[in-house]
């Protein structure tokens, strides 16, 4: 798979990554190589094979009792936040 610069710009946008012009050609090249490399999977015969999402078969989701176990610790948790006002996380205006 050979990606164009436009493809990579689209992917970077979807992933919310700013990529500089200089980086763009490097990524266009390396992502194309990686995709070509993984395309060898296409040759594998996986006709009726079930996809595997978890390494351990037969395990199923455990269910937790409906109990409140947490207390308010927003000050501790917000000590890592870049911008907080009145206990809210502050971001540039959200336009709906």
């Amino acid at each position: 798979m050979s990606l164009t610069r436009k493809d990579v710009e689209g992917i970077a946008h979807l992933a919310r990554l700013e990529i500089t012009d200089a980086e763009m050609s490097v990524y266009t090249d390396s992502l194309s190589k990686i995709l070509s490399f993984v395309e060898q999977l296409g040759a594998a015969d996986t006709g009726s094979i079930e996809p595997m999402a978890h390494p351990l078969e037969g395990e199923s989701q455990r269910l937790r009792p409906d109990e409140v176990t947490e207390t308010d610790q927003h000050e501790k948790y917000q000590s890592n936040a870049p911008a907080v006002a009145s206990a809210l996380y502050v971001v540039p205006k959200v336009i709906e």
Partner: peptide
């Protein structure tokens, strides 16, 4: 875009983009 573009290094960005694709 800038927070993530600046905060992640080249290999991480490469893998995020591969995975996104």
């Amino acid at each position: 875009k800038r927070s993530r573009g600046e905060g992640f290094g080249a290999e991480v960005k490469r893998r995020i983009m591969t995975g996104t694709y």
